[in-house]
Amino acid sequence: MSIQHFRVALIPFFAAFCLPVFAHPETLVKVKDAEDQLGARVGYIELDLNSGKILESFRPEERFPMMSTFKVLLCGAVLSRVDAGQEQLGRRIHYSQNDLVEYSPVTEKHLTDGMTVRELCSAAITMSDNTAANLLLTTIGGPKELTAFLHNMGDHVTRLDRWEPELNEAIPNDERDTTMPAAMATTLRKLLTGELLTLASRQQLIDWMEADKVAGPLLRSALPAGWFIADKSGAGERGSRGIIAALGPDGKPSRIVVIYTTGSQATMDERNRQIAEIGASLIKHW
């Protein structure tokens, strides 16, 4: 067993022997301040990774656009098919120029040779490549099948209805392509620590998230040296922004954090800054 596999296998073990965790309302004060600064709703939840206990939450059962955070769930569904012998990570998928959609920095470079399922998941999570996500959605049967996968996990809230990039439209009061912070946090925890996926697939999923290259201005910008984070960000229309993450000190994750916002007129930089400040408060009061 590799060191990384050992780390993920012992996530519940280490967490069980940690000192009790206590909620700190100071972080919620910052979440509410972010709402004021952005002029928009902000949803927040913080779960203990081992027990699933909610440590703090704000608007945990209000719907927010998922945006690209759905790509972690998508690759979880792909990995479940791999575990069941219905898919192979090494299978190569070929596609054409007509398949390319807006923001496809990886797939646009491989029109000639195609990409493997493993490479597509890596591109979808680490670079948020939209064509990679659409190609992977095709392998599982489309958005409705991802929703069905989530329902089978016990998540009857999260739903995907459309493809990239239309799913980022974020129309107010439109339930399409949305989740709730509580539902997303619980589902992410199941994917990373539950028995739904094999140990190898859980490790692969967290490795992809740990290698995320496009979430630097968010929670990662607030992390002290030595902290662990595996995350996936999302951005959408109407001032929408979000991030889902597993993080913790001492090089291992111990909490799940989900943050979503929508309806702001603020710039992307300002949305990023507010999420980073929430992260800084979380870490300060850990």
Rank of each mutant, 00 (worst) to 15 (best):
E119D: 15
L137F: 08
R159T: 10
K144N: 15
A266N: 15
T186R: 15
P253M: 15
R176G: 06
D33W: 09
G263C: 08
Q97L: 14
E175W: 13
L136G: 02
L199W: 13
M209A: 03
I283Y: 12
K252W: 10
M180C: 14
T193Y: 11
G142K: 03
G279W: 02
I206M: 13
F70Y: 04
T147W: 05
A148Q: 12
A230R: 01
N50Y: 12
S68E: 00
M66Y: 04
K144R: 12
A132Y: 01
T147Y: 02
L247Q: 03
L111K: 09
F58Q: 09
S51Y: 07
V78I: 15
S80G: 14
A40P: 03
I275K: 02
G239A: 05
T138E: 14
A123M: 01
T193Q: 15
R63C: 06
K30D: 03
K213D: 06
S233L: 02
R162L: 04
L120P: 01
D36S: 14
P165T: 12
S221M: 10
P181R: 00
R220S: 04
D48R: 03
A183S: 14
L73K: 00
R176V: 06
Q265V: 14
H24D: 10
T107A: 12
L196C: 15
P65S: 06
F64L: 01
G234K: 00
G194E: 12
H24G: 12
R162A: 05
L74Q: 00
I45G: 04
F228P: 01
N50K: 14
E195T: 13
D207K: 14
S122T: 13
S128P: 00
Q203D: 10
F228T: 07
L223K: 06
L196N: 12
A132S: 08
G236T: 06
A230I: 06
F70H: 09
Q265N: 14
L218E: 01
D250Y: 12
A230P: 00
Q204N: 12
A40F: 04
I140N: 05
T267H: 12
T267G: 13
F64K: 01
S281K: 15
I229K: 00
L73Q: 06
C75S: 06
G234N: 00
L205K: 02
V31P: 01
I171E: 15
T27D: 05
I256F: 07
A84W: 09
T178W: 02
G236P: 02
G251Y: 10
A182W: 12
L111A: 11
D36N: 15
S122Y: 13
R255Y: 03
F58R: 09
N173E: 12
W286F: 09
V117E: 04
Q37E: 14
D33Y: 10
Q274I: 12
T178F: 02
P253T: 09
S80Q: 15
I243L: 12
L219C: 01
V157A: 11
E237C: 14
E145L: 10
L49D: 05
A183E: 11
R271H: 07
P253N: 09
E277D: 10
V78Y: 00
D36P: 05
Q88T: 14
K71G: 00
A280E: 15
L137E: 01
W163M: 12
S201E: 00
A34C: 09
L38A: 07
M115A: 06
N168K: 02
T116V: 06
L73V: 14
R238I: 08
A40N: 05
L218S: 01
S281E: 14
C121Q: 04
G154Y: 05
E62R: 05
A77W: 06
G39Q: 14
A123S: 10
A200F: 10
Q37N: 13
A280R: 15
R91Q: 07
R59K: 10
M268I: 12
E62Q: 09
L100Q: 06
I93M: 09
R255S: 01
R91D: 07
I45L: 15
E175V: 13
E26Y: 10
I278D: 02
A132D: 02
Y260D: 01
W208S: 03
A182H: 15
E169N: 11
D174M: 02
M180T: 15
M153I: 13
R63V: 07
D177K: 02
G248H: 04
K30M: 10
L197P: 04
T138A: 14
T198P: 06
A133G: 12
V101Y: 05
M115K: 05
A133M: 02
P172D: 11
E102A: 15
V117H: 03
I140H: 04
A246V: 13
F64W: 02
Y260T: 05
V117K: 01
V214L: 08
H156Q: 13
P172R: 10
L282G: 04
P172G: 09
S221R: 13
R118D: 13
S264R: 06
S57F: 10
F70N: 05
L79C: 04
T261M: 15
F149E: 07
I140S: 05
I244W: 00
I93R: 03
E237V: 10
A225I: 10
T107Y: 02
T147I: 07
T116S: 13
T138F: 11
T198F: 07
V117A: 04
A230V: 05
V117C: 05
R273G: 11
A211D: 15
D174F: 02
T193S: 12
W163D: 08
L150M: 13
N134G: 01
T158N: 02
N168L: 01
A230D: 00
H156N: 14
G39A: 11
